[in-house]
């Protein structure tokens, strides 16, 4: 809800400078998850450069459709496209900012951070295999925590979303039955539980239903002060969701291993790494029809990389590590050229 003022301010800023004719206007469309930070960056960028960013948060697959149809300068998606898809559509993909997904719960007498879960247990809860809170598998990791003899109600996102995609990707990595059962994707067939629309819908249900467990974006859980669980990461350590845990996940990743930086940051090694972390991506055409527009978009993201970290942290996003930003900039220089072969991005 605190994003609203920024969105309003951004649109006001956009309206205010529509008088300035010479300023560039960049258009983008796609993922809803990074919309608040893009709007915030756009507002500051506009104040500094008079250039405007018009970003429509229509959903990741909408963003992919729009950039394929070349109706926008860049598309934005939470789930990365695979190498062959990028190749086929002539697109270049790069990450911009990261976020985390956290399990939230409603258990009387169990405060935030007290509940510890392993990935396999979390998957079994959402798969309907662990049905009671005092199940031996949950109790094992929670010595000293009084867990009720009550049925667990899982709560999931009913709308197709990047959050669900990240969460189920993680569950599929840590649980074989989940992988062969519901699987990973923006919406899956949940065997049990209730669906809420959007982060706010999930949060409302978790708050209302005793003994429930759900998952929301980190920023949402933090701002609404919903109890969050600790998770066991790949190194076997229990960690809580916080900025340094997300950064640890990003630092441990091999970003160059996948085309278009399409790495999964879920279940990354590292003692401090939060296991459900994910970057959000931007797509631009490799041989753009309007190279000057793509160049403007790159300038905007370069500016965001340089000056936008603090704004991202304020909105509970996680900035990319410095070396990843340099990798992305190098990609811009080597892969994005105009018709005469000159790189679109100049340092």
């Amino acid at each position: 809800m605190k994003f609203l003022p920024y969105a309003v301010a951004a649109s006001l800023a956009v309206a205010a400078c529509s008088l300035a004719v010479s300023a560039a206007e960049i258009t983008g469309a796609g993922a809803t998850f990074p919309f608040p930070i893009y709007a915030r960056w756009a507002e500051s960028y506009n104040q500094e450069t008079k250039n405007r960013l018009n970003y429509q948060s229509i959903g990741s697959s909408g963003g992919i459709r729009q950039i394929r149809a070349k109706t926008v300068d860049f598309g934005a998606t939470d789930a990365p496209l695979k190498g062959e898809e990028l190749e086929k559509d002539g697109l270049v993909q790069f990450p911009v900012v990261m976020g985390g997904v956290v399990p939230v719960y409603n258990l009387q007498g169990v405060a935030s951070g007290q509940l510890k879960l392993t990935g396999a247990v979390l998957a079994d809860i959402f798969n309907g295999k662990i049905t009671k809170w005092n199940d031996a598998q949950i109790a094992q990791a929670n010595q000293g925590v009084k867990l009720p003899d009550a049925a667990i109600t899982p709560v999931y996102r009913s709308d197709g979303s990047g959050t669900t995609s990240v969460f189920t990707t993680y569950l599929a990595q840590v649980s074989e039955p989940w992988k062969s059962g519901p699987g990973a994707g923006a919406s899956v067939q949940w065997p049990i539980g209730q669906g809420g629309k959007g982060n706010e819908g999930v949060a409302a249900l978790v708050k209302q239903v005793p003994n429930s467990i759900g998952y929301v974006e980190y920023a949402y859980a933090k701002q609404n002060q919903i109890p969050v669980a600790q998770l066991q990461n790949k190194n076997g350590k229990f960690v809580g969701p916080e900025a340094k845990a997300f950064q640890a996940a990003a630092a441990g990743a091999d970003w160059k291993s996948a085309p278009g930086y399409g790495v999964s940051l879920t279940n990354q090694p590292g003692d401090e790494a939060w296991p459900i972390t994910a970057p959000t991506f931007i797509l631009v055409p490799k041989n753009p029809e309007k190279p000057e527009q793509v160049a403007e978009a790159l300038k905007f993201f370069d500016w965001s990389f340089t000056k936008g970290d603090q704004m991202a942290i304020e909105l509970d996003y996680v900035p990319l590590p410095g070396q990843v930003k340099d990798l992305v900039r190098a990609t811009w220089q080597s892969e994005l050229k105009d018709k005469s072969g000159q790189p679109l991005f100049k340092k």
Binding site: S158, G160, S187
Partner: peptide
């Protein structure tokens, strides 16, 4: 779920 709610939930991210 209803027909309309299913469409509202999934249309954004459907391909």
């Amino acid at each position: 779920s209803t027909i309309a709610s299913r469409i509202a939930n999934e249309f954004n991210e459907a391909i």
